[in-house]
Amino acid sequence: MNVLKTLKVDAYAKINLTLDILSKRPDGYHEVSMVMQSIGLCDRIKFSEEPKGSGITLVTNVPGLPCGERNLAYRAAKLMMDTYHIEQGIHMNLTKRIPIAAGLAGGSSNAAAVILAMNEMFCLELSREELCSVGEKIGSDIPFCLCGGTMLAEGRGEKLTRLPSMPQCYVILAKPPVKVSTAWAYQNYQKEQVKEHPKTDEILSCLAEKNLVGIGKLLCNVLESVTINRYKEIDMLKKLMLKHGAMASLMSGSGPTVFGLTEDAKTAEHIAEQLRKLTNARIFVTKTVCGN
Rank of each mutant, 00 (worst) to 15 (best):
M1W: 11
K8C: 09
V9L: 08
D10V: 10
K14S: 05
K14Q: 03
N16D: 02
L17D: 03
L22R: 10
K24D: 05
G28T: 04
G28C: 09
Y29W: 12
E31C: 12
S33A: 13
Q37L: 04
S38L: 01
I39C: 06
I45C: 01
K46D: 08
K46Y: 07
F47W: 08
F47A: 09
E49K: 08
E50K: 11
P51N: 15
T60C: 15
G64E: 10
E69K: 13
E69S: 13
R70A: 14
L72G: 05
A76D: 02
M81Q: 15
D82S: 13
D82N: 14
Y84R: 14
H85M: 13
I86A: 06
G89C: 10
H91N: 15
N93S: 11
I98D: 05
I98T: 03
P99R: 05
G103V: 00
L104G: 07
A105R: 04
S108E: 06
S109W: 02
S109E: 01
S109Y: 02
V114Q: 02
V114T: 06
M118A: 07
E120G: 06
E136M: 15
E136Q: 15
K137I: 04
I138V: 14
G139P: 00
S140T: 08
F144L: 07
F144R: 00
C145M: 12
L152T: 05
A153L: 06
E154W: 05
G155W: 03
K159L: 15
R162T: 14
I172A: 05
I172M: 04
A174C: 12
P176W: 04
P176F: 02
V178F: 06
K179D: 09
V180Q: 00
A185G: 04
Y189F: 15
Q190C: 13
K191I: 14
Q193S: 15
K195W: 09
K195D: 10
T200Y: 05
E202S: 12
L204P: 08
S205F: 10
S205I: 14
C206G: 02
L207A: 03
K210D: 06
K210Y: 03
G214Q: 04
L218A: 06
L219K: 00
I228Q: 14
I228H: 12
K239G: 14
K239F: 13
K243S: 14
K243T: 11
H244W: 06
H244V: 07
H244D: 07
G245I: 00
M247H: 05
M247L: 13
M247F: 08
A248C: 11
A248E: 05
G253F: 02
G255M: 00
T257D: 05
A265Y: 10
E269M: 09
E269P: 06
H270I: 12
I271W: 02
A272H: 00
L275S: 02
L278C: 11
L278S: 10
T279Y: 00
N280W: 07
V289M: 10
V289N: 04
C290Y: 09
G291D: 04
N292I: 09
